[in-house]
Design a protein around this nucleic acid. Structure first.
Length: 649
DNA sequence: TCACGGAATATTTTT
DNA sequence: TATTCCGTGA
């Protein structure tokens, strides 16, 4: 099925490494100078096209380091370069690239002085950022209020959205959080406090990396010239998920050479809630006049019956590059829409179907269950455990975000920077008898003492906590030790705390061993800490050495985390109007459009079997309404495209 | 001021 | 599921 007739296997572009390309892909691979937009439909060989182009350029003698490949995840860029290396040779691995954030980080440190920044800034991940925001919020919360200030999580969302959409905090609150508009002044004040504190402590959060890099390129022409001249070819993956700052960064990066190729699918833009603007892809030809546009519409993934359905779904979108996916494969089962009596019947039904598929010889890891929100799978998880079906859940928390890893990292961060307020607060409160109050006073006297880590003892009365603080001091007074010993000392100190705090400490202790293993690969603490924030190891919190042994497991995933992946059989559960699209999205048309695209992404993950399920009647407590329709995105589709079924008890 | 336990609650989350 | 919130007792 991967060998349609018109493939030109003898063409010079593909001949060297023999992997077939279709005509559109070949045109994209052969493109050399000037801007190029590739609209790559789901399953149309996007990655193949990118990797072939990298290999082709390198094969023709372009120096790898002058090719810049920007992606959203480190994993994506690694995989692409490895594939290119397999096509050609290891030179492809020397292509410049990585994530927007890691690239910004690199260049910002290099040119920090141009912007009056210190090159040794620390990086705040989302958890750190929230912790700092929480502190600022507490400080500014002296006056009595009729209503509590928004939670730290909400505040971080607001600030991040303001940065990513290049709007003021006022605007964001007014437009996107109208229910908080009576607190706008307080929110803005916290925002300024947060910004001030970051500068004072030389911290950058994820958004700052992009914002400052954009500013550097814009305000320092000589730097812009130097950087842009050093990349002859720029390629960007998942362009539909870039935000305005990223688009602007790219624009500046092409100052010297206009050889930019972006690849994306506007129909799969599902990160607008984080500031991604799918208009970037629509506007690309306006920004880069004379841009060539190539569409990849031949699908190599799904059967025609599945594509018939997904084409209908995406037809319902308002604004898009219209595309119509097709395949040359014949046959295939109709997608199904199954109503069940209630949630537990839905779980039972899905499990039965999975068992049927297994009986037919389908491997478990070729089956996925997708859902809108990560808690939608809770009931199913229980049923799967009951039936002894192994599964992995992807999406949600990352290895480096779990509390125990953050705890250990915080100790190391204090060693790297003894005035790191966020980390001090965190580790001090791990000491017995020390709460928020004591942490604050200890930190304040520590800063005043200006004696580094040993300033820990500058506060006179600490009474009950003294013993714990001494132990803490012993663990982090290790500036001169080799890195690994430093880590070991911290973990050794932390293990008893781990046991006190977590019931599942054995599992978490193994994670810490892994962390030490990673630390061994580094020689500099600051590099290690930066990498942990920007390029965390690719393991989810669950995915330890232990569980990785069995990889034939069912996949449970949020739709967001499933982007770019495919399975033989896909179940989309909770396809209930009000859950998917979620009630939250219904107020805003743009949000509904994104939900629709999300449904499209879900449906296009399936190769052969696609099944939607929903509980027929669900009472929504928060809104006080009865949900009893299938998702509007797949409602009223004729039976010869989508087969309907009801499952009772 | 701190620790602890039970209850409530939950969009999505590449960096 | 797992984090966070809130009340209680020390």
């Amino acid at each position: 099925m991967h060998k349609p007739n018109d493939i030109c296997r003898t063409h010079a572009v593909t001949g060297a490494w023999g992997e077939a390309l279709n005509e559109a892909q070949r045109a994209a691979v052969a493109h050399s100078e000037g801007p190029l937009l590739v609209i790559a439909g789901a399953g149309s060989g996007k990655t193949r096209t990118l990797t072939h182009r990298v290999a082709r350029l390198v094969a023709e003698g372009v120096h790898p380091a002058t090719i810049l490949l920007l992606t959203f995840t480190r994993k994506a860029s690694q995989e692409m370069l490895q594939r290119a290396a397999r096509l050609l040779d290891r030179r492809c691995e020397r292509v410049s690239g990585g994530t927007f954030h890691s690239f910004a980080n690199l260049k910002l440190r290099q040119y920090a002085s141009k912007m009056g920044l210190s090159p040794d800034f620390g990086i705040l991940d989302r958890t750190d950022a929230e912790a700092l925001i929480a502190m600022i919020r507490k400080e500014s919360d002296r006056a009595p209020r009729q209503r509590p200030l928004p939670r730290k999580n909400t505040l971080a969302d607001i600030f991040s959205r303001a940065a990513n959409t290049v709007r003021s905090v006022d605007d964001v609150v007014f437009a996107d959080y109208p229910h908080l508009s009576d607190q706008t002044d307080a929110i803005v004040e916290i925002f300024h406090g947060y910004a001030r504190s970051k500068r004072e402590h030389r911290f950058m959060d994820y958004d700052d990396l992009l914002v400052w890099f954009q500013r550097l390129l814009q305000e320092a022409p000589e730097v812009r010239q130097r950087i842009s001249a050093s990349y002859r070819y720029i390629m960007v993956d998942e362009y539909q998920d870039t935000n305005r700052i990223q688009a602007d960064i790219l624009y500046h990066l092409t100052d010297a050479n206009r050889n930019i190729m972006v690849v994306g699918d506007d129909s799969q833009s599902i990160y607008a809630f984080r500031g991604a603007d799918f208009r970037n892809i629509i506007d690309f030809p306006k920004l880069f006049a004379g841009a060539r546009v190539i569409g990849l519409e031949e699908n190599y993934r799904s059967t025609q019956p599945i594509l018939n359905l997904t084409n209908i779904v995406i037809e319902r979108a308002r604004e898009k590059y219209s595309k119509h996916l097709f395949t040359r494969t014949a046959g295939g089962a109709l997608p199904e829409l199954v109503a069940t009596v209630d949630e537990s019947t839905q779980s039972v039904f899905v499990v039965e179907q999975i068992q049927n598929l297994m009986a037919c010889g389908v491997r478990l890891d070729q089956i996925a269950v997708l859902f809108r929100a990560s808690f939608h799978s809770f009931d199913l998880e229980i049923e799967l455990s009951r039936q002894g079906i192994p599964f992995v859940k992807v999406g949600g928390f990352k290895f480096t975000e779990s509390a125990h890893i953050k705890d250990v990292l915080a100790h190391l961060r204090v060693i790297a920077n003894p005035y790191d307020r966020i980390s001090w607060y965190r580790i001090l409160q791990l000491v017995e008898k020390v709460g928020p109050r004591s942490a604050q006073s200890i930190y304040e006297s520590l800063v005043a003492a200006k004696a580094g880590v040993s300033g820990l003892f500058s506060l006179k009365q600490k009474g009950a906590a003294m013993d714990g603080l001494k132990q803490l001091y012993r663990a982090i007074d290790s500036k001169t030790m080799p890195l690994v010993e430093m880590g070991e000392a911290v973990v050794h100190y932390y293990l008893p705390i781990l046991k006190r705090l977590f019931d599942d400490h054995p599992k978490r202790a193994r994670d810490l061993e892994q962390l030490l293993g990673i630390l061994e690969r580094y020689r500099r603490l600051d590099r290690f800490l930066t990498d942990m924030a920007l390029e965390p190891p690719n393991i989810s919190a669950e995915e330890t050495l232990y569980t990785a042994a069995t990889d034939d497991r069912l996949v449970l995933s949020t739709i967001h985390s499933a982007k770019g992946l495919e399975w033989q059989s896909v179940f989309v559960i909770w396809a209930l109007d009000g859950r998917f699209p979620s009630l939250y999205a219904m107020a805003r048309e743009a949000d509904m459009e994104e939900e629709l695209r999300l449904m499209y992404v879900a449906a296009t993950r399936a190769r052969e079997n696609l099944c939607f399920t929903y509980p027929r009647q669900v009472w929504d407590r928060s809104m006080g309404i009865l949900l009893n329709r299938p998702s509007r995105f797949i409602d009223s589709i004729p039976d010869d495209i989508l087969k309907k079924r009801f499952v009772g008890i």
